[in-house]
Simulated assay, not measured.
Amino acid sequence: MIATAVVIALHVVGIAMLLSLWRLLRGPSLPDRILALDTLYVNTIAALMLFGMHLGSAIFFEAALIIAMLGFVGTVVLSRYVLGRDIVR
Rank of each mutant, 00 (worst) to 15 (best):
T4F: 14
S29G: 10
L24H: 02
S57L: 08
V42S: 08
A68I: 05
R23Q: 08
A9H: 04
M69K: 07
H11S: 13
V6D: 02
N43K: 04
R85H: 09
F72V: 00
L24D: 06
Y41D: 03
R26M: 07
L55H: 13
R26V: 04
M53T: 11
I66D: 07
V7N: 09
S79P: 03
A46F: 05
V13N: 06
L50E: 02
G52Q: 08
G56S: 09
R80F: 03
M49Q: 10
D38S: 09
F72S: 04
L70K: 02
L18A: 12
A64C: 06
T75R: 01
L18R: 10
L65F: 13
A9F: 01
H11A: 15
L55C: 09
I2M: 14
V7S: 14
M53G: 15
D32A: 13
L10E: 06
A3Y: 11
V76M: 02
I87C: 00
M53Q: 12
L70S: 06
R89D: 12
M69I: 13
L35I: 13
M53S: 11
T44S: 05
A5M: 13
L55W: 12
T39F: 11
I67Q: 02
V77S: 01
W22V: 08
L10Q: 08
G56A: 13
L19S: 14
F51C: 06
L78R: 01
G71R: 00
L21G: 15
H11R: 10
A58L: 11
L48F: 01
L78A: 04
L19Q: 09
G84Y: 00
V73P: 02
A63N: 03
G84K: 01
I67R: 02
A16V: 11
L37C: 11
P31Q: 07
G27L: 10
A58I: 14
G56N: 10
E62Y: 09
R23W: 09
V6W: 01
W22Y: 14
D38Y: 08
D38M: 00
L10F: 05
F51T: 08
F51H: 07
M17C: 10
H11Y: 09
E62T: 14
A64I: 02
H11M: 14
A46H: 07
I8Y: 12
M69S: 10
G56R: 11
I59Y: 14
P31L: 05
S20A: 15
V13M: 10
L48P: 02
G14Q: 06
L48D: 01
I8H: 13
T4W: 14
